[in-house]
Each structure stands twice: as structure tokens, then as C-alpha cells.
Amino acid sequence: MRLSNRIKEMQFSPIRKLVPYAQEAKNRGIDIYHLNIGQPDIKTPETFMEAVRNFDDKVIKYANSQGIESCLKSFQEYFKQWDMNFGDNEIIITNGGSEALMFALMAICDHGDEIIIPEPFYTNYNGFSAVAGAKVVPFTTKAEDGFHLPSKEEIASKITDKTRAIMISNPGNPTGVVYTEAEIRMLADLAKEHDLYLISDEVYREFVYDGLKFTSPYYLEDVRERVIIIDSVSKRYSACGARIGLLASNNTELMKEVMKLAQSRLCVSTLDQIGSANLINTPASYLEEVFAEYDKRRNILYKKLKEIPDVICEKPTGAFYVVVKLPVDSGEDFAKWLLTDFNVDNKTIMVAPAQGFYATPGLGQDEIRISYCLNCEALSDAMDILKAGVAEYRRTKMNL
């Protein structure tokens, strides 16, 4: 039986491709520190659970395709705290940020159109683009530069008559970069000059460190109708399984058309929206404590990484990830070897090979992505295992 080219051209998640090796290691009695996935370990706010427990309708009905009113209003209130204003028809609740990204790409792209993205990028951007029939065209950022953007001329060289949008993650997954106001202005100017949309994935908005300033392209009034905001409760409220995201834009024509997609999948889970709507009532101290905890983890991670000889990375300034260039010949082989052949006191680590975060063949081969979603003690131990693993891998596998 024939399968579609669309499905065959999609890639499996490089973040999860080593799961069978991890399971085999667990079956051998090996404990694994999971540094491969951005699953927060911090408790979800009680406000979410309270709202779900208090839901007393006798029937769990279809919700409105745009989203239930209380959930939409709570997001409007949340955005006002960030000086972002969206009207009643300018937010659509989605099944996580993932569906929001797919809706955005399906609404603006025809088959064969192109989206330009700084690489390394969140791996699922490839999959979302494939579903929309669009092609990812990357421009490369480097660990040595902290993964900040290249020149305007270099980015412009990637734009063709098929380009429909520039897409960014800010703060960045997988790099931890926070783009400066000047970088966002540069992208906005490119969008204006070439008549493009600017898709801004801002799910890590709360996690900006070292006193840096978060800048959304939404803040630039001259491009506001070109801007599509992607957001989610997953990361800031440790509610990944709730699958509540959104697409927001002041472009009313775009939002009207995206509603067709929302209606085609009927609705988002009623109970998850009920819980998420009440997150706006979470005490400010929750996010303050979460931020402080991730900042501590970031400092531990960076200090330990700098103790590993020949590792290249800049200190991440946002989100809770870092891409690290290792003194190994293959990040993927190294990541697999950690699960199959290496442990310290019956403990090892699982990391994500960074090659899958690039679209340019050959890039990222000696890099890995690390998520610092572990508690401080576990993270410190995991980084010691990484240091020992790098030394042993170079000695036994690379004869160094």
C-alpha cells in the first residue's frame, strides 16, 4: 500500500530516537538522568487542579472552537501584563503550542513555500512545516557566538519569492539564546522589506536571565499585523500534559482564516481549558520561585560544563536548554554510548544529539542539547557523569 510523500518526508523526533536504548539500560538496572527533554519537574500550580476539581457540569460538552470564554479572557489578562493587547477575536486556543505552529504555517503557506529559521531550531519545526507542505530554509547560528543572529545580509540571502515567513523561538529552544532588541528590529525590517510574516514562538518568555530584556516583535508597531505569536502554559506553569497553547495576532484577516482550522478539529479539551483559565490566579510568588530555581540550575550547569576540557558553549541566557559543542567525533554516537556502554555507580545520562536540530547537512555532529529540568542535586551529579563520560569516550572510542 502506498504512503504519502508528506509522511515519508517527515523525520522522527531526534529527541526521542534513543528511547529504546534508554529502556534497555533501565532494564539492566541503570538509573538515567534525563537531560534530553524539556519536561519540568516543578509542581503544577494548585490553581489548575482546583479549577478542574470544582468543575461540576453533568456533561463534558464540546467547547467553542476558538476556546472557552474564561480561558480566552485569562490569556488576554496575562498578555496585558506584558504590554500585549489582543481583542476578542485575536486569540485562538490550540492543542499546545504545537498545533498553534501548524495552524500558522498552514494558514500562510502553499505547497512548496519556504520558511526561514535560525538553526539550530526546535526539531518539530521541520515536522510542522512538512505537514503544511512548506520547506525549512535555515540560516546558521554558532555556539561560539552564543547562537545570536548573523548579519542582515546573510539572512536576506536566504529569502526568495517562495519565502512566506521568518520563524524564531525567543528565548530559544534548543540554544537558550535571548535575542536583543536590535536583532528583533532587524528581523522586523526584513519582514517589512520582503512582505513576510514573523512567527514568534514565545513559550519561554518568563525565563530571561542576567537582567536581560525580553523583546517581542509585537512591541514594534510598524510590523504588528505581520506578527504571529505562539504561546503555551506548558513551560511557565509546568503543565506540559495539559496541552493548552494559543495562536494570537492583531491581523484580523489571518485570525478569521485560522478559525477554519480550529473548527475542523472541533475544539480543545474542555477540562484542560478550565484548569488553564484559572492559572491567571496563580500567586506571583510561584513564577518568581520557578525563575529562581531555573537560574540556580543554569549556574550549576554552566559551571560544570566549563570544567570539561575542550567544551565550547556560552552561558545560556534564556529558557532552560543549552547546545554544547563536545570534543567528540559524533554527538549521536556518544549519546547512544552513554546508554549502552557507560555508567557511574549504575547511573548514566540521556542527552539529545544536536544534529537533528539543524537542517544543513553535516552541522551539529559534535554537539548535544542539554535540558536543565532536573533538581540541583541531580543536575550536579548528571554533569559529573557527563564529564566522566566524555573522558572515557575519548579514551576508549577515539583512542585519545
Rank of each mutant, 00 (worst) to 15 (best):
T360Y: 07
L187S: 08
N126K: 10
L149C: 08
A130E: 08
Y302I: 03
K387E: 10
N85H: 15
E314R: 11
F214G: 07
Q76E: 15
P118Y: 10
I230L: 14
G67H: 12
M259S: 06
S285N: 07
E69V: 09
A132W: 00
P217T: 12
V131P: 00
Q81G: 06
D210R: 01
L149R: 02
S285P: 02
T348V: 03
L363W: 03
Q23S: 12
P14F: 05
L271N: 04
I228P: 03
K26D: 04
A388T: 07
Y286N: 05
D341K: 12
S330H: 10
L279Q: 11
D110Q: 13
H111K: 15
V258K: 00
F214L: 10
L271M: 14
K43M: 10
R265Y: 13
T215L: 00
Y218T: 11
V258D: 00
A248C: 13
K43V: 08
Y393P: 02
D341T: 07
K135E: 09
E46G: 04
G176Q: 08
T340K: 07
A143C: 08
A25K: 00
N85R: 08
V208R: 00
E50C: 01
S285L: 13
N170E: 13
N281I: 05
M398W: 08
G133P: 01
E114I: 00
F75W: 15
P138L: 01
L212D: 15
K73W: 03
A292F: 04
M106E: 15
F48L: 12
P327M: 12
A22E: 14
Q365H: 06
A104P: 02
I91Y: 00
N85Y: 15
D41F: 08
K17G: 00
D333M: 12
Y294I: 06
I166Q: 02
C373W: 05
D310V: 03
T175Y: 11
E293I: 03
K43C: 04
L18F: 02
